[in-house]
Amino acid sequence: MATKRAIAALAACCVALTACSSDFKGVYDLPLPGGADIGDHPYRVTVQFADVLDLVPQAAVKVGDVPVGRVETIRLGEDGWTAETVLAVNGDVHLPANAIARLRQSSLLGEKFIELAPSAAKAEGRLGDGGVIPVASTNRNPEFEEIFGALSLLLNGGGIGQLQTINRELSKVMDGNEEEIRSFLSTVEKLVSNLDSHRSEITSALDGLNQLSATLANRKKQVEGALTDLTPGLQSLSDQRTQLVSMLQSLDRLSGVGVDVIKKSRADLVADLTALAPILKRLADAGESLPKSLEILPTFPFTDAVRDGIKGDYLNVYATMIPAPGVELPPPGEGVPPGLPTLPLPSSGGS
Rank of each mutant, 00 (worst) to 15 (best):
D260H: 14
Q249Y: 08
Q243S: 06
D272G: 04
V223N: 00
L227C: 03
V223Q: 05
D229E: 08
T274Y: 07
S255T: 14
A226C: 01
A226T: 06
D252C: 03
R266G: 13
T231H: 07
Q240F: 01
G233T: 15
G233R: 13
A271E: 07
E224D: 12
T231L: 10
L237V: 05
K263Y: 05
A226G: 03
V223E: 02
L251G: 13
S246W: 05
G258L: 14
A275T: 02
P232W: 02
G256P: 02
V261A: 05
L234T: 04
V259R: 13
L254H: 02
R266P: 02
D239V: 10
Q243K: 08
S250A: 15
P232T: 04
L273V: 08
D268Q: 15
G225Q: 08
T228H: 09
I262C: 10
V245C: 01
V261N: 10
S255D: 14
Q222G: 05
D239C: 09
T231E: 13
L244N: 03
S238M: 07
K220V: 01
P232E: 00
L244Q: 06
Q235V: 10
G225C: 02
Q235H: 07
D268K: 14
A275Q: 11
L273W: 03
A271F: 03
L248D: 00
L244D: 06
P232G: 03
R241C: 02
A267T: 11
V261S: 06
V245A: 13
E224W: 09
L251V: 06
L230G: 02
T242G: 13
Q240A: 05
D268R: 14
V257C: 10
R253T: 09
G258A: 15
K263C: 03
D260G: 09
S238E: 11
D272C: 05
Q235G: 04
I262T: 15
T242D: 10
V259E: 10
L230C: 07
T242N: 09
R253D: 06
L227Q: 06
T242I: 08
Q222F: 04
S236V: 11
K264Q: 12
L251Q: 08
E224R: 02
D260I: 03
R241M: 12
L273K: 07
L237T: 01
L273A: 15
Q249C: 09
L251M: 09
V245R: 06
